Amino acid sequence: MADYTDAERDTVRNAAFGAIALVSKADPGFLSSFKESLAGSKALAAGPKEITDLLRSGGFPSPPTGDAAAQEQAVLTGLTEAKALLTAKADGSAEAFSGVIMEATQAVADASDGVSPEEQAVIDKVRAALA
């Protein structure tokens, strides 16, 4: 695994957990949020070792601040930055990261009563941010 600074690890971790939070917020409700958070966390934990090691390093993720639109924009920008950072490391982790994030966001959406149109819209934005 390439060497990462604390700031780089924070960028990757915040983007990953922010993506699953965005999809979860698209389907409000306490029980839904609980099921979805668990599903997203399991999907992130099941990823390739280089990604799970990166996500587990450091402290807790920092949720974005501001209104819903600002939070969404911060997470999507973070995903793009994380992918660029991982691509620059040239260790193959960028594609693994994208795959894990897409699997996790899909797991979140599937966790409670199937994928709603709102959840699909967020997943599409996440996919675009990782492209």
Score class of each variant (00 low, 15 high):
S93K: 08
S33D: 14
V75Y: 01
K83R: 13
L22I: 07
S116W: 04
Y4L: 11
P64L: 00
Y4D: 05
A82S: 08
A68H: 07
L85E: 05
T11R: 07
L31F: 13
I20E: 02
A21G: 09
A104K: 08
G47T: 10
F34R: 11
R56A: 14
A96E: 13
F17V: 04
P117E: 10
P28E: 09
V12G: 02
E72S: 14
T5F: 05
L22N: 07
K25D: 15
A16S: 11
K49C: 00
D110S: 08
L54T: 05
E119N: 04
L38K: 14
L85K: 08
A88M: 02
A39W: 07
A131F: 07
R56F: 12
P48K: 15
D53Q: 13
A131E: 15
A70E: 12
M1I: 13
Q71C: 11
L85P: 02
Q120E: 14
A26M: 04
I51W: 07
T87W: 01
D10E: 13
V126Y: 04
R127W: 01
Q73N: 11
S98H: 08
A88S: 12
V75D: 03
Q73V: 09
L86Q: 04
D91A: 06
G47Y: 08
D124W: 00
S62E: 12
P117M: 09
G78S: 11
T105F: 00
S37V: 00
S62C: 00
S33M: 12
D110Y: 03
D10T: 09
L55F: 10
A109G: 06
S57K: 10
Q73D: 12
L54G: 01
D67K: 06
G59W: 09
T87N: 06
E95C: 02
T5E: 08
A131H: 14
A111V: 05
G40I: 01
D3G: 12
S41M: 10
A15Y: 01
F34Y: 11
